[in-house]
Amino acid sequence: MSVDIVIAGETLQLLPQRALYWPARRTLMIADIHFGKAAAFRARGVPVPHGTTAQNLALIDTLLQAHAVEHIVFLGDFLHSRAVQNSASLHTLQQWRETHADLKLTLVRGNHDAHAGDPPAALEMDIVDEPFCIGPFACCHHPEPRAEGYVLAGHVHPVYRLAAGGDSLRLPCFLFGDGYAVLPSFGAFTGGYLVMPKEGERLFVAAEDAVFEVPLR
């Protein structure tokens, strides 16, 4: 169950898979996927799960099957570190790309991309610096208001704590403010930063199979 929200005169769909879909442009927006992060941790001797790259790509495939996507915009931090450039994760990415040759891919460089380096040309991605302007939106990595348009960004990996009767649950969330929105981290192994909405902002949490707005006082 997705949620529709109208921003800058355009209807956007907030998806429980922690992505945003813009039906009018058949565009999927994904923030902070961090391909190769788990592998980078394992290389340092930290025992973390295998298969996160395949898991992330399978989730993208689920969204491609559910929506008429022609264009994916990655809002920064596509690769986690330079070590990914010569890893099994990159080979998996290249195999996935070969099966989606007609799909347009755009990467808006984020802070991790600056260190990791651009993805190889074989992935056939358009790679740009922020802002990447499309319609009324400025696609960025860093969530800061810009004159070029309403900003859709990532970087923060926002999560919100729901509490009831002594129990609490941290869930990834979408945060919409005056001039910019922050998307949750899409990656399967990326963690989250607890956010506290300000007055006038709207917050939507992404549960397993639904998105719902949290009433804010």
Results as ranks from 00 to 15, higher is better:
A54H: 03
E124H: 15
H67I: 02
P119Q: 10
G45I: 14
L64C: 07
G76F: 06
V84L: 08
A122Y: 04
I60S: 05
G51V: 00
A66V: 06
Q85F: 04
L123V: 04
D113F: 04
T106C: 04
G76H: 09
T99Q: 15
R97I: 03
H67Q: 14
P47K: 09
A121L: 11
H67A: 08
L59C: 13
L123R: 02
E130V: 01
M125E: 11
E70A: 13
P47L: 08
A121I: 12
P120H: 08
A116V: 11
D126L: 15
D102M: 07
R82T: 12
A54T: 11
I72Q: 03
G51L: 04
A66I: 08
P120A: 13
H100I: 02
G76P: 10
Q55E: 15
L103Q: 05
E70S: 12
E130A: 15
G117S: 02
G45W: 09
E124G: 06
V73L: 10
Q85L: 13
H91T: 15
V84C: 04
P131W: 01
T62G: 10
P120D: 07
D77F: 05
K104F: 05
L79Y: 03
M125R: 13
P131K: 06
S87A: 04
S87Y: 09
D118M: 07
H112V: 02
S89E: 15
G45C: 13
L93P: 00
G117A: 05
L59H: 11
L59N: 11
L90T: 07
T53W: 03
P120K: 11
R44N: 09
L63S: 09
T92L: 09
H91E: 12
A54D: 11
Q55C: 11
L75E: 06
Q95V: 14
V73T: 08
H112D: 03
Q85K: 14
R97D: 00
R97M: 02
L105A: 10
A116I: 14
A68E: 14
L63Q: 14
G117E: 01
P47C: 08
D102V: 10
T53K: 11
D113Q: 04
L64Q: 06
F74N: 12
S81G: 00
N56D: 15
P49I: 02
A88V: 13
T62I: 07
Q95E: 15
L79N: 03
L103H: 00
N111R: 10
T106Q: 10
I60V: 15
W96D: 01
P131D: 07
